[in-house]
Write a protein that binds this DNA or RNA. Structure first.
Lengths: 332, 332
DNA sequence: TGCGCTCTGCAAATCGATTTGCATCGTGGG
DNA sequence: CCCACGATGCAAATCGATTTGCAGAGCGCA
């Protein structure tokens, strides 16, 4: 079950040593033009396809990058994966994926597996792991990009401008003269909800408005959750004139609640979501939302990684914040 | 830059040869209980983590599976990826991904790259490649699951029951006494549109109805396209009482066209989509559609692959058809 | 002429595991 | 008592590349 054509076969055919073939094809040492031509031709004629596995054993480089996410089927991550993929594939790197469901053991398992497989770099979305776990499993020399907001920074890092996004959304409402604005966040924790909440608060304060405690409510990140809490908001004596939501699903729930209550959108209630998932443009009326550019996010992780893989950068950890963009449709 | 702990280190510590360590840990030959214990302990104490790269070089097995898709960011494929991932990860296999954008050269490039990386198996969604390309690049012994409908079968294969799905959708309408049913397919070609069309036709014929040529229209697979062609249908002298669409986006476009024309859904126009994308349940009214179970699809590809990887099956190519399921919501 | 330097090329070691072939030691059956 | 065989362990070959060290040839310069 040996490989069909090896470097020795090429060497034999070209009448040189395997050493010379290696040098000729890799260019790590110079060979004469004549030899180079003979080697090239021999390789060509035999259909030589070098074995990356053998090469990796010696060089310790696999041209593979690990991507660890909670769930590759969750719409955000495929776009990230694609962005990463597009950046690194251009330099011949492959992406190897692990879905962890946010389980700590699974996260560690994939991390360990990928390190042993000697991936050249790792992009990690982790929610259950801590810095010391990371350093225990991942050798210091392996580039690692961390893509979650909760870890202290000992690695390169990419994040979304959550606060800036909801700040822009809030300002968009304020600019229309709307001041009674509520915010629907996610569950307490280190998810994006409270970072987005912070942007809302800041915009309100900057406008000289102090958001009342009652104007800030929490939900899980689902349509049903959004429908429920916004339904409750609308039932109050003084319902808000607008809601900014921590994600699009909540916002879609808000739309449903408004419709159920007979409250016209956006004239009586303006709604703004966050993420710009596919469905945002498909619901009726189409949702005004803050685009969370997952693809761009992925590209940035790829850039940070590639800069280190190709020795273009060798300094202290860097952080990239991916900007968001307000997409104005019909709900605000 | 050598690996920290190698098999020789373990051997030294346990006072045996590397051979014995290998046999002890792999169980390929028997070792005495005492030796086994000593080896285990030595490995443990040193924190031995075997190198899959070295192992692969000798064994030709990498425990990696390649997944080649047109676009990992397209909602269908992440779910497939997850299904595949879940099945094979249980046996220690990793998924390595390539997005090709349906480009022939890119498809071939990833195929070649993965084969050279000596993946143990490949799952391929290809639209631009032909059987002979495949056999040229992929060694006969590498298990390959083909997941598109247009290739002649020389490999294991997984497909969706496209015809069955739209047949069920059509019958669902017929059962309500609706007979004026139109079908919106995709562009001519080997996409799923015409396989879905076939199911519609069959159901109509089985009911003794001969669908008129005018009842079958084509669109691209987008909302805009669906809106346009269904708008045209509704403007006819005798508009259909229902439309079955080749995918959900078209169906959502149909919804928009109906709303624009003031045609109530489902009372004056019933609409059924195909795929059950996330947005299907989020639009208003929620879309009745045929679920195309991508996750299950991925699991099936994983099963076919794993059966061969683990030598559980060694016969001629098999085909698995993943059943669809009618999801009745509010539009039909 | 002689010294040193660059250019070219090869032999051999190396990466870290797996696998084959051989040797040794008991043990039980004939 | 002897032979066959299973159990156990090691030395060495192997997978297919890369890299190091060495050597010969050719050239320029003092």
């Amino acid at each position: 079950m040996r490989q069909s054509v090896t470097i020795s076969d090429v060497a034999a055919r070209a009448g040189v040593s395997p050493t010379t073939v290696s040098h000729a094809l890799s260019g790590r040492r110079s060979v004469s033009a004549a030899t180079l031509a003979r080697v090239r031709q021999a390789a060509d004629e035999l259909g030589y396809r070098p074995s990356p596995v053998a090469s990796s054993l010696r060089t310790k480089r696999t041209h593979m990058v690990g991507l660890i996410v909670p769930d590759i089927a969750n719409p955000f991550y495929p776009a990230v994966a694609r962005g990463l993929h597009d950046v690194i594939a251009a330099d011949g790197y492959y992406t190897i994926i692990g879905s962890t469901d946010g389980q700590r053991d699974t996260e560690l398992g994939f991390l360990d597996g990928m390190v042993r497989r000697s991936v050249d770099g790792i992009v990690m979305f982790s929610f259950a792991i801590e810095e010391k776990d990371l350093t225990k499993v991942v050798p210091a020399r392996t580039p690692l990009v961390v893509a979650t907001g909760n870890l202290p920074s000992g690695h390169d890092r990419v994040g979304t401008d959550d606060a800036g996004g909801s700040e822009a959304a809030t300002r968009h409402l304020l600019a229309q003269g709307i001041t009674e604005i509520a915010f629907v966040s996610g569950p307490k924790g280190n998810g994006p909800g409270d970072r987005r909440l912070a942007g809302y608060t800041q915009a309100m304060l900057a406008a000289g408005l102090a958001p009342a405690e009652a104007d800030i409510v929490r939900s899980d990140y689902t349509v049903a959750g959004g429908r429920e809490v916004v339904g409750e908001l609308l039932g109050r004596r003084r319902p808000p004139r607008a809601v900014v939501c921590a994600n699009d699903l909540i916002a879609i729930g808000a739309l449903e609640a408004a419709q159920a209550a007979g409250v016209p959108v956006p004239t009586a209630l303006a709604v703004i979501g966050f993420d710009d998932i596919d469905a945002a443009s498909l619901v009726a009326p189409p949702l005004t939302t803050v685009a969370n550019p997952a693809y761009e996010f992925g590209r940035q992780t790829g850039q940070l990684l590639l800069d280190r893989l190709l020795d273009r950068y060798d300094g202290p950890p860097r952080t990239v914040v991916v900007p968001t963009r307000l997409v104005v449709r019909a709900t605000a």
